[in-house]
Design a protein around this nucleic acid. Sequence first.
DNA 1: TTGAAAGCGCTAACAT
DNA 2: ATGTTAGCGCTTTCAA
Lengths: 340, 340
Amino acid sequence: MTNIKDIALHCGVAISTVSRVLNDHPDVSQDTREKVLRAVKELHYIPNTSARNLVRTSSDTIALLVKGVNNPFFARLIKVIGREIAQRGYSLELHHMDTSEDELRIGAQLTNERKLIGILFLGGRFNYSPEEMALIHVPSVFCTYTNTFGNLNPSAYSSVAIDDKQAAQDAVDALVALGHRKIAILTDNKDDRSISELRFQGYKDALAMHGIPFEPNLVACTGTFSDMRAIYEATSRLIERDSSFTAIFAIADLMAIAAIKALSDHGKRVPEDCSVVAIDGLELSSYTLPTLTTLVQPAEEMGLLCAKTIIELIEHPGQNRQYTFETVLRPGGSVCRLNG
Amino acid sequence: MTNIKDIALHCGVAISTVSRVLNDHPDVSQDTREKVLRAVKELHYIPNTSARNLVRTSSDTIALLVKGVNNPFFARLIKVIGREIAQRGYSLELHHMDTSEDELRIGAQLTNERKLIGILFLGGRFNYSPEEMALIHVPSVFCTYTNTFGNLNPSAYSSVAIDDKQAAQDAVDALVALGHRKIAILTDNKDDRSISELRFQGYKDALAMHGIPFEPNLVACTGTFSDMRAIYEATSRLIERDSSFTAIFAIADLMAIAAIKALSDHGKRVPEDCSVVAIDGLELSSYTLPTLTTLVQPAEEMGLLCAKTIIELIEHPGQNRQYTFETVLRPGGSVCRLNG
DNA sequence: TTGAAAGCGCTAACAT
DNA sequence: ATGTTAGCGCTTTCAA
C-alpha cells in the first residue's frame, strides 16, 4: 500500500506538505499542489482512514446507526436524512448492526473510533437507563422511537417519534366509526417493551373507551414484523380459532398485506367480510389490491426533523427535546362500513 | 475517553499486559487478567478500532459492500451470508454506500483501513475494467452480478449470479406457452449496461425466437426499480398508448405489483385481461392478490455460495470462478392462458 | 509472566 | 510556503 510518505518521497517534499494538499489547506503553492496530486493519481494512493481518525480530534461526521436491516420504513427516512445532512455541510456515515447488538455500545465505540460529532439512532430500544446513556458523549437523536419504557430525564435525550399508542387508538377508532366492534389485532408481541406493546396497549385502550370488551381470542401474535409466512399463519390460526371478528387492526403494513391474503384464502373478502387497518403508510400499500387503509408515519417530515435536530444539538449543545408526530389516516380500499 | 494506558496505570501493569488480556493471549497470570478485566469494566473502557487497525497487518474480517439501500432482494442474501461467514469463524462487516459512489474505490479504502481479508460486492456495476479491478488486492466476489459488460479476464474475478438474459427469456417463454403474443415489457431502462439492459435483451431475443415482431410501443421504461408511483405511471402511459397487449413481463417483482394496480385502475383484470410475469421471487409476491408468477432467484443458495466462495478464495487464493444460477418459475395467480 | 520500546499512517503544532 | 517533529491508541517484537 502506498502511503503519504511514498508520495512525499516521490515528489521530494515533506509529508506535511502532502497532508496539506490532501486536506485542501490553502497555504500550498500551486506547483506543489499539482505535483502532489499527480503523484497521488500515479501511485494510486488511497488514504488510510484509521490513521487519520486516530490523530484527528474531531470530524464533521454524523453517524446514522441503523439496527435491523429489514425495515422498509427506514429507507425513506435514511434518504431524507442523508440529503439534509449533506446540504448542511456535514458528512453522514451509515452504519448497520444486528438486532442482537447494543446500539449504545456500538455508538460509543464508533464515536471514539471515527471521532463522530453526533449520532442518529434508528431502530433502538425504548428503555435506556441513565447509566447506559452515559456511554454516549456526543449529541444524539432517537429516530422514530422514544424513551417510553426507560427512565431517562427529558433533558438527557432527544427523540423524533410518533405516538404509537395514539396511532393504534386512531386505527381502532376508525374501525369503530365504521360500525365495527369485533376487532381483532395482529401484533408482533404483547409485551416487548417496545412498539408492539405500545400499539397493543393503544388497541386495548381504544376498545375500553368504546365500551367494547377485550377478547384475548382476537389477539394474534406473529413474533415478527417481516416474515410474511409467519404472519400469514398467525392470521390463519386466528381465523380458524374465532372468525367472529369483522375487522383486523394490524400494527404494521406488511402484516396487513399477509393478513389480507390469509383472509382471502379462508374465503373472507376484504373489505366486504373483513375490514383491515394498519400503521405505517408504506408506498407499497397504495399499490396493493385492495389498497391499504393505514395510519401514515410522515417519514419525510420526521427524517428532516431528525437531521435538523442533530445539527441543532451539535451547534448548540444542551437543548435536548422530544418531538412527537401525528400519524395521518390514508384511506384505502381495505375498509368499509359494517354490513354496508 | 479512557484508553489502554489508563487501564495499565490503574492496574499498575504495563500497557502490553493490558493488550495481552484484551486479546486473549495465554501468557498472562490469572490474577493480572482478572485485575485488568475488572478495570476495563469499572473505567468503561472501549477499544479504539482505528488504533488497532492501524497497527495490525491482518484481520479476520470479510466486508460485505452493499451499493444502494432499497433492494428488498438483498436482505435475504445478507442474512444467509452473515450466518455462513460467522459459522466459518470469520467476521463480517456490513458497509453500505450510495449508488453514486465507486464500489471498487471504497473497497480498496476499506481494505487498507480495516485490514480486510476479503470483500463481497453486492449491487455493483457489470462493467469493470482490469485497471479498476487492480485496485482490489484481496479476494473478492461479485454477488448477484457479473462482468457481462466489462473486459475482465475470467481468471481475474469471481461472481455468483443468475443469467439475467436467460431469466427474461424464460419469463417470455412462459407467457408464449400460455398463448400470448402481444407481450409488453416493463423495464427500468433499455441500455444501462446492467440488469435492465440484459433482461430487455432477453425479452427481445425470446420474441425473435418465437417469431414475434418486436414493438417499441410495448416497451415501458420506468427509470426506477423502486419508486412505485413512477412505475405505476409508466404502466398507465403504456396502457393509454397501446392496450393491445395481453401480457406484461416486468423485470422486477415490485414493478409487477405497481403494474397490476395500474392495470386494475384501467379496468383490466389480472390475469383475465392481462397476464403478468416478473423476475425476483420476493417473499412478498406470494402474499399479494393475485399472487405473482415470478422467476425466483434462489437467494439462500446464492448467498451461501457467495460466502463459501470468498472463504475458499481466502484460504486458497487464485481459484477465481464464475457461478451462474438458474431461476425457477414460481407459479402464481397473475397469469392465465390467453382467452382461457 | 511481564515490561520497554518501536512504529502503524497520519495531522497539527511549531519552526523556518 | 514548506519542513520537522510529537504524538493519536494500539500490537508486537525483544529483553528481562
